[in-house]
Design a protein around this nucleic acid. Structure first.
Lengths: 142, 142
DNA sequence: AATCTACATTATAATAATTCTAAACTGTTG
DNA sequence: CAACAGTTTAGAATTATTATAATGTAGATT
């Protein structure tokens, strides 16, 4: 049984047609052990390499957004110039390495539960996410 | 004594010339009691109204970025389409109201101290910031 | 207060990122 | 395997941001 089957079912499950491009994207995105963080540009390159042919930028944007809407991808915005997507769609925290521009997952157990004492009247909390910016510790290396 | 003086000194203090435009920007940005959250577009409109004439978009971008670099403004990125600036440049937390697209400061006292158990080898933590997304609580209003 | 000089501002052009469009293509259903 | 509806594509359009080069202006010098 080809492992594509999982992806085909996954796609059907949320009402997306399992087209060549989408299956290829699924393999790049979800066929891995660890969570995967990427920018649109990263992804275009990786899919092109995998398929050994170009894929239209528009297709990548459309499909990423389709996945996002269906809850298979989650956007993590670092600043106005750096936007990542994450295959881990649960609400979770991140380290951002400002030296390498790398986004690193922060396990639930790595951070104490966050307790918010205030609430906004008439509003419910949809998500609570922490971004921890890190950079090389030059002070220690003098 | 016109209250501009503060701004003129403030600007000189970090090596920026107190030009007409910058003084106007300072008034819009810093002449208020509460922290101010805005997008570039918001700001262009407000300054144009205040000055009663157009201000070049390029000037607003350049000056906002100059202020940011000097530590008078801080960027808060919500998603790839929504980037705000904040006159409160200390590391602090925010509520984001997804109904109104409004950014709301979260006081230090509104949230328990965040304790991070993991550290990335060779890296130091530059900032820890929480974004709490809220939206209207329709479940309660049925 | 006139002049000078370096830095600012401006309108416009350039670039970058993202979305739209309309035609061609392809999975799926029957 | 025909027909339809959804998908992909290249390229155009749009939007956000930055660069450019001419003009303007604050502040120092006289």
């Amino acid at each position: 049984m080809p492992k594509n089957c999982n992806f085909i079912e996954k796609l059907r499950g949320v009402g997306l047609r399992p087209t060549k491009q989408r299956i290829n994207m699924c393999e790049v995105l979800f066929n891995r052990e660890k969570t995967f963080h990427f920018t649109i540009n990263d992804l275009v390159k990786m899919i092109s390499e995998k398929m050994n042919q170009k894929i239209s930028l528009a297709t990548v944007y459309n499909t990423v957004h389709a996945f996002e809407k269906k809850g298979y991808l989650k956007e993590i915005s670092i600043d106005s110039h750096k936007s990542y997507f994450d295959t881990n769609t649960s609400s979770h925290h991140h380290f951002f390495d400002e030296d390498t521009n790398e986004l690193i997952d922060c396990d639930e157990s790595d951070i104490d539960k966050i307790n918010i004492r205030k609430n906004i009247p008439g509003k419910k909390i949809n998500s609570v996410e922490v971004l921890i910016r890190v950079a090389s510790d030059n002070q220690n290396q003098k």
